[in-house]
């Protein structure tokens, strides 16, 4: 079996040293999620908001990934004015519960690829599935897994995420304002992407299915 990546283990030790968490409970998580719905929606689908700040889909993301992000917001490793007031209300147990809740919801569809033309989508698909080695852009799927639907706890599913959200995250890595990724793995790739490429790959990923079935 795959071991929990060390980074998460370390994080776990740092945040709950001394006492163990009770098992994550999705039902308790549903109650916690009541305050999240205003943005992430009752079904966890979030919302693509052109020209504004998009709310990411949480439904069907990996529980350990969600939990890491919430810890990162809380510790300031990752920053977001929208999220800050909400994570500060969550203790470690609530984080584990709400992560289990969202991870258990069926994934919804990504939005925001509608206006992209065929050439843009083709370029996006190339970056996602094969990369562009002439600029050492490794394909997204080589980390984010088959169909870009996620690989383990460290590499989240990005297919079927909203284009607006994907774009702002990649721009944030490029600008150095998001840097909570292990070993700068995402940052190294994002910094090699042009704005056009970010647009293209975000549009294509949003048009893809978040889960294999």
């Amino acid at each position: 079996m795959k071991k929990i990546p060390i980074m998460l283990t370390v994080l776990g030790l740092a945040t709950c040293s001394g006492f163990a968490l009770a098992e994550a409970d999705a039902t308790r998580g549903a109650a916690t999620a009541a305050v999240c719905m205003a943005c992430h929606q009752a079904d966890g689908s979030g919302m693509n908001i052109p020209g504004g700040e998009s709310w990411p889909r949480l439904a069907g993301l990996d529980a350990a990934y969600i939990s890491k992000q919430l810890h990162d917001y809380k510790s300031g490793e990752r920053s977001s004015a929208s999220m800050m007031p909400f994570v500060s209300m969550l203790d470690d147990q609530k984080i584990a519960d709400v992560a289990a809740y969202y991870a258990g919801l069926p994934a919804t569809k990504g939005k925001g690829s509608g206006s992209a033309d065929e050439a843009t989508l083709k370029r996006g698909q190339q970056l996602a599935e094969r990369g562009d080695w002439s600029r050492y852009v490794v394909s997204c799927k080589s980390c984010h897994g088959p169909g870009n639907q996620g690989a383990g706890a460290v590499f989240p599913g990005i297919a079927g995420q909203h284009a607006g959200y994907i774009k702002t995250q990649l721009q944030a890595w490029k600008a150095g304002t998001r840097k909570n990724d292990t070993q700068d793995l995402m940052g190294s790739i994002a910094r090699r992407l042009s704005d056009d490429d970010i647009h293209a790959v975000a549009a294509w990923l949003a048009s893809q299915s978040a889960s294999a079935n």
Partner: peptide, 13 residues
Amino acid sequence: SVCHGEDGEGLRV
């Protein structure tokens, strides 16, 4: 090891 695992076993999906 974040990708290849502590026992070098890698990851399949």
